[in-house]
Design a protein around this nucleic acid. Sequence first.
DNA 1: CGTAAACATGACCGGGTGGTCATAGTGTTG
DNA 2: CAACACTATGACCACCCGGTCATGTTTACG
Lengths: 217, 217
Amino acid sequence: MPRPTWDNLDSARRERVLHAAMAEFGRHGYSGGSLNVIAREAGVAKGSLFQYFADKFEFFAYVAEQTSLAIYAEMVPHLDGGPRPGETFLAFFQRLVDVWIDYMDAHPLERGVTAATTMELDPQVRQAVREPVHRLYAQGVRPLLDGAIASGELAADTDVDALLSMLVLLLPHLALAPFEPGLDSALRLHATRGRARSAAAHRLVAVVLAPHLVAAP
Amino acid sequence: MPRPTWDNLDSARRERVLHAAMAEFGRHGYSGGSLNVIAREAGVAKGSLFQYFADKFEFFAYVAEQTSLAIYAEMVPHLDGGPRPGETFLAFFQRLVDVWIDYMDAHPLERGVTAATTMELDPQVRQAVREPVHRLYAQGVRPLLDGAIASGELAADTDVDALLSMLVLLLPHLALAPFEPGLDSALRLHATRGRARSAAAHRLVAVVLAPHLVAAP
DNA sequence: CGTAAACATGACCGGGTGGTCATAGTGTTG
DNA sequence: CAACACTATGACCACCCGGTCATGTTTACG
C-alpha cells in the first residue's frame, strides 16, 4: 500500500527509513511511536514520509508486514526441506522453533516489531497488523500439518485451523521471552549451557501437538 | 501511593474515578490512555486527579494494583479451601483456572486492565506495574506449591520460583483469549457447550506442572 | 459567627502529535 | 535551452497531551 514514490526511491534512503521505523515502532508500539523521531533518525524530512505513505497507520502496517516477510523468508529454507529422514513430525517442528528463536535473538529490530504487534492493545490496529502475519503462518505451516496428516503422523480429524492459530499465538511469546524476565528464567530459553536451552519450548510445542499425534505403532 | 486526599474522598466519587480509569486504561493502555477522558467520564475536573495522584504513572500503577487486589480477593476463598478430599494437586490447580476464567468473563473492566498491563510494551512501565501482580501471585500460589511438595505430589527439587513465573505469564493469556480470535477458537475456551470449554486450558496447565509431578504410586 | 483547612475547578502552559502545503530543487525529456 | 514531472523540505496547522495554579467553594471547628 505504499505510494509509488516509495518504490522509486533510492534504496539506501528507503532502507534508512525502514530501519528507523522498525526501531521506533519496535520500542514504543504503534500509538507511542513518533513520526518526528523516525524522520529525524532516518535523516529525512517528516513531509517525505507522507509522500511514501498515506498516513501513520499505513506506514506501521507496512513496516509490520515487511518484518513478517523478512522473518518468513528466513524460515522458508527450513520449511521446504521438510522432516529429515527418520525425523518425527514433532521433532521437526521443535527444530523449527529453535531456528525461530535463534533468528529473533540475532535480529533485535525484527523482534521489536514482533513485540509491538504482539503487544498491541487496540483491537483494530491489532487485527489489521496481525492479519498478514497469520496469512504467512498459514502459508508456511499449513502444508506441514497437511503433510503430517497425509503421512499418518497427525490424526486425520485434526482441526488444522485451530492448531495453526494456537501455534501462531505461542511462537511470538517464545521469541519475546527475553523481554519477560519471569518467563525467561522459568523456561530457561536463553540459558547458555547446552541444548537444555530450548527444552521447555519443546515441551510447550509438544503439548499443543500431542493430542493430535497418532501414537507410533 | 495515592495522596491522603484520595482516601478522604467521598466513596461514590472515588468509585467513579476508579471506574472511568479502569475503562480508559483498559482500552488504550498506559501511554494511550487520556486523563482528560478519564476526568470527563468520571464527571470530575482534571485538576482533581492531580490532587489524588502525583502524576499519570502513579495513577496508572494504582489502578493496576487495585485491580490485582480485587482479583486476588476473589480468588482467596478458592485458594484457602485447598484441594478437596481426594482431589489431586493438578485437578485442584485446573479448577482454579476455571474460576479465574469465569471471573474475567464476568468482569470486562478488570480484564481490560489485566490486558493493558500484560500487553504493556515499555519495559519500565511493564516491570513497575507487574511487580505487585507477581507479588500477589507469589503470596497466593506459592503456598499451594509448597503444600504439594510437602504432600509428595510435587518433586522436592522443584524450582518453585520458576514454576510461579511460568504460571503468572500463562494465566493472563488464558483470561485474555477472547481478545485473541485465533487463540480463542483454537483453545475453545469460550465455547458454550459443556465442560469441554476449558479442556485446552487444563492441558496447558498440565504441561507446565507435568515435569514436576510425582507419579502416583 | 469567624477562621482555617481541605478540596474542586477549569483556564492556562509548554510541548509534542499527525498531517498539510507552498516552495524549491532535480532530473529527464524535447 | 525550456518545459515538465517528480520529489525533498520544513514552516505551519489544529489539536491533544500531562501538568500547574490561582481562585472559589465547602466543611470543620472554636
